[in-house]
Write a protein that binds this DNA or RNA. Structure first.
Length: 325
DNA sequence: CACTTGACCTGTCCGC
DNA sequence: TGCGGACAGGTCAAGT
C-alpha cells in the first residue's frame, strides 16, 4: 500500500533514472488511466524529455519538457517499474539498510531482525514480486529512446495517471486540499496539534488517515506511529493530552524517515522503481502482527476495526483516551 | 456542518 | 477440488 515512504522511495529511484530520457512511445489500454486528459495524450508525451520527478503526499509527478506532467496515484496496488540498462547500474550502487541497528525502538541486542518468513509465516512473499513485464496488471507503458521502459502496473485498478499542464498541477483539486508534508522542514509540532484539533471529536486514527490534516499517512504508519506514541487508535483527539500529541508528532516523523531508509513497506504488492521490495516490514511493531506478542511488553497484539480500517494495537502499551481532559 | 460508512476493484485465503 | 464469501485499503460520494 504505497504511502508516503513508499512513494518517496519510488520517486528517489525514478529521479535517478528518468531525467534526460526522451519518450519514444506511449501505450495504454485503460481508459480510466487518463481521465480528464487532453484527447491527444500522445501529442504531449511522445517526443518530450523527462525533466524532473516530484512527490506531494502520495502523488508522484513526472514533469516533461513539453510543459505537461504525468501525475500518478498508486492507491492500493499500483507500481511504477523501470526496466533498462540503467537499472542494473543504479542497483549496483545501492546499499540497503538491513537489520535494525538504527531502529531506536528495538534493543540492538535483538539485531538483526527475524526473517520475514519467521515473523509472518511461510505465505509471506520473499521473492521478487515482479516478473516479466508487461503482465496482466500493466496499464500504461512508456518506452524511452534507447530501449528502456517504464511500466505502470495496477492489479486492482484503483490507481490513476493523469496528464496535465505542469503549471496546473499545484492547482489540481486533489493536491490543493492536501495537508502539509509531515517531513517538511517548516512543519512544527504546534502545526500538527492545531491540525489534529480541527477534528477534535474524531478518533485519532481517522484523523491521521485524513489527507487534509497531514499528507501521506496511510494505514501502516498510522498504526505504527500510534503504537510508538502509546496512544490507542480509538482515542478521541480532544481527550489526548497535549504532551501525547507532541509525542505522536515526533514518532510519526521518526517512523516515516526510518521507513524511507528501509525503502518502504512491502506487505503484498509494493515495489520500488526497480521492482525491489521494501524492508520496513521487518521492523514493524504492530502492523499485521495480530495474535503475536508485543515486542515491548509481550502481550498479544490484537486486530480491531477503527475508522473502517483493520487496526493493530497493543492494549497494554497504548492508552485509550476517551473522557474530556 | 461534522463525522462515518459504503463503493470502487481483483487476487487471495478460509471454510464448507 | 471447487466454490462462495470475506478481506485487503486510499479516496470520494453518499449517508447519518
Amino acid at each position: 500500500m504505497p504511502e508516503l515512504p513508499e512513494v518517496e522511495t519510488v520517486k528517489r529511484g525514478l529521479k535517478e533514472l528518468l531525467p534526460g530520457l526522451e519518450i519514444a512511445k506511449l501505450d495504454f489500454n485503460w481508459p480510466k488511466g487518463f481521465p480528464n486528459s487532453p484527447t491527444n495524450v500522445k501529442k504531449f508525451v511522445v517526443g518530450s524529455k523527462v525533466q524532473d520527478v516530484r512527490r506531494r503526499g502520495k502523488v508522484l509527478i513526472i514533469d516533461l519538457s513539453s510543459g505537461y506532467s504525468l501525475v500518478t496515484h498508486l492507491k492500493m496496488t499500483g507500481q511504477l517499474v523501470f526496466v533498462g540498462k540503467a537499472a542494473k547500474q543504479v542497483m549496483g550502487n545501492r546499499k540497503w539498510v538491513m537489520g535494525n541497528a538504527d531502529d531506536p525502538l528495538v534493543p540492538s541486542s535483538q539485531s538483526p531482525a527475524p526473517a520475514l518468513a519467521e515473523r509472518f509465516g511461510a505465505g509471506h512473499p520473499t521473492k521478487s514480486l515482479v516478473g516479466e513485464l508487461p503482465d496482466k496488471s500493466t496499464r500504461v507503458i512508456i518506452g524511452f529512446k534507447g530501449g528502456a521502459t517504464l511500466f505502470f502496473n495496477d492489479q486492482r485498478k484503483f490507481g490513476w495517471m493523469k496528464l496535465m499542464p505542469t503549471s496546473e498541477v499545484e492547482a489540481m483539486e486533489f493536491i490543493k486540499k492536501l495537508g502539509p508534508e509531515p517531513l517538511g522542514l517548516d512543519f512544527s509540532s504546534a502545526d500538527f496539534i492545531a491540525r489534529l484539533l480541527t477534528r477534535k471529536n474524531s478518533n485519532i486514527k481517522a484523523v491521521l488517515l485524513d489527507q487534509k490534516v497531514v499528507a501521506g499517512v496511510g494505514n501502516i504508519y498510522a498504526d505504527e506511529s500510534l503504537f510508538a506514541a502509546g496512544i490507542h487508535p480509538s482515542s478521541i483527539v480532544s481527550a489526548i493530552p497535549k504532551s501525547k500529541q507532541g509525542q505522536l508528532y515526533t514518532n510519526l516523523k521518526m517512523i516515516l524517515e526510518l521507513s524511507i531508509k528501509k525503502g518502504g513497506t512491502t506487505d503484498k504488492n509494493y515495489v520500488d522503481a526497480l521492482g525491489q521490495r521494501g524492508n520496513f516490514m521487518e521492523i514493524v511493531k504492530v502492523f499485521r502482527r495480530e495474535k503475536q506478542p508485543c515486542l515491548v511488553c509481550g502481550c498479544e497484539i490484537i486486530k480491531i476495526r477503527v475508522a473502517g480500517r483493520g487496526t493493530h494495537v497493543c492494549t497494554k502499551c497504548q492508552k485509550l483516551y476517551k473522557g474530556s481532559t
